[in-house]
Amino acid sequence: MSTHIKTSTLQLSASGLEVVRKDAVKAYPDECCGFLFGTETEGRKITLAVPVTNHKDGDKRRRFEIHPQDYLRAERLAAEIGLDLLGVYHSHPEHPALPSLTDLEMALPYFSYVIVSVKSGKVVDERSWKLNESLGLFEEEFIMQPIHLS
């Protein structure tokens, strides 16, 4: 289902990481979700994280779903601000930051999937995953130390 081979790297801005962590804590015990924007000119750099509502009908503690209108807005925002839509984040309350079979089934190529593990309301881990389409599994991306942007 997943592998621990880290074949690529991901830089997350400190401000973006803070947004992701705060959203994960705020949504707890439900799962949070949001979009990741950035650039790929010198490796993949996430400079902006934007939370969106978890629209999953039913148990939000173990599932998330992003509304199609929110996806449309994210694509439009990326075009407006000159960044690329590079991925999605979500949280796993009381669960490791490992992709589930559901995550794998819904995974799209190209996107980085940052997963935040939250235990007892506190963030304990965050890891990033990218679909290897040909192998049909996730490969982990090495998250570099947060970058501070002026």
Binding site: E75, H92, M106
Partner: peptide, 11 residues
Amino acid sequence: SIVPAIAGGKI
């Protein structure tokens, strides 16, 4: 616009 489904979860 083509809009892919974005969903998942821990289980």
